[in-house]
């Protein structure tokens, strides 16, 4: 594993919010992958903050794809490079949670099915943040967004608690494709993330990394707390670090004793409205998830 990152910046001068988790994920991955990298970004925060002519802030070749096409454009670049005999290039995509789990799921599935040698990184900030915080299928249960508001009138009913669906598990979805390599990661554990990006770059087939990347603006936390809150999500068991390779699951950190889910949730404005009952429900979801994770990793 790389112990020293490149000094060179490949994602520099963007207009991301202070404390933006997604930009940390992009910046670090590019330092691992280096100069010979072709980047695809669909519509989303990273393309909005870094790609407005004439202020273009990628130091490597990069393009914005149509929202639904991250996987397809990555495949096109990979296949084009292969056809033209370009050797040793990394083809990497950075798509948000909506761009991956909602509108981009079909193209991602197609790319994995073809087994193209690409790295797909989903930076998950758990809602459509670029458009001002709307629910995606990776918005966690209970989170308040502008399309899943929490309010008195319907609170207590099915739709009063913010988002009422349980976060889709993209790791499960991609591993069900028999992908060459998949991992979950977090900017709350940067060495682990860097190791996974490096590993992905050495795979012969498709790699998928799902990196938890908090959004202080959308989550309602201090901009200085991005990394800390990402760490806390892992500690309380609402996020997990795992890998899948050659059909084998590895749980990178089997948390023996979780920290308080309530404390994690109550630090964030998006969960402020939750009742104790809601929090108990979230704790139960966590326990169920970990039971299945541990079983898979056995």
């Amino acid at each position: 594993m790389k112990t020293k990152l490149e000094q060179e910046e490949y994602f520099y001068g963007h207009k991301g919010c202070a404390g933006c988790g997604g930009s940390i994920a992009v910046r670090l991955a590019l330092k691992v992958l280096g100069k010979n990298t072709l980047v695809v970004l669909p519509a989303g925060c990273m393309s909005a903050v870094g790609f407005v002519y004439p202020q273009l802030c990628f130091g490597v070749n990069a393009l914005i794809s149509p929202f639904a096409s991250t996987g397809a454009m990555l495949s096109g670049l990979y296949v084009g490079a292969k056809a033209l005999g370009l050797k040793d290039v990394n083809v990497v995509g950075f798509a948000g949670d909506g761009g991956t789990a909602d509108i981009g799921l079909q193209a991602l599935s197609g790319a994995i099915d073809r087994g193209d040698k690409i790295i797909y990184i989903c930076y998950d900030n758990e809602a459509y943040m670029n458009t001002g915080v709307q629910k995606s299928s990776l918005t966690p249960y209970g989170a308040k967004t502008t399309t899943t508001p929490a309010g008195d009138r319907i609170h207590g009913g099915t739709y009063g608690r913010g988002s009422t669906s349980v976060k889709k598990d993209m790791f499960d979805i991609v591993t069900a494709h028999n992908i060459a390599y998949a991992a979950t990661a977090s900017i709350g554990n940067i060495p682990d993330y860097i190791r996974k990006v490096e590993k992905a770059s050495k795979m012969q087939g498709t790699s998928y990394i799902h990196v938890a990347a908090p959004c202080p603006t959308g989550w309602g936390v201090e901009s200085s707390d991005t990394v800390a809150i990402a760490k806390e999500a892992i500690d309380c068991g609402l996020w997990y670090l795992a890998e899948y390779e050659d059909g084998e699951y590895t749980l990178n950190r089997d948390v023996k004793e979780f920290t308080s889910v309530k404390e994690y949730l109550k630090k964030q404005n998006r969960f402020k409205h939750l009742t104790d009952e809601d929090i108990v429900a979230i704790g139960c979801q966590r326990d169920k998830k970990w039971k299945s994770l541990r079983k898979k990793a056995q």
Partner: peptide, 24 residues
């Protein structure tokens, strides 16, 4: 030629755009 089977027409056109920007 590199022959790609894709999962939709939307992806077909996006994929050839990706290849084309490299000069293919």
């Amino acid at each position: 030629s590199e022959y790609m089977y894709v999962e939709s027409e939307h992806s077909a056109l996006a994929a050839v755009m990706g290849a084309s920007v490299l000069g293919a």
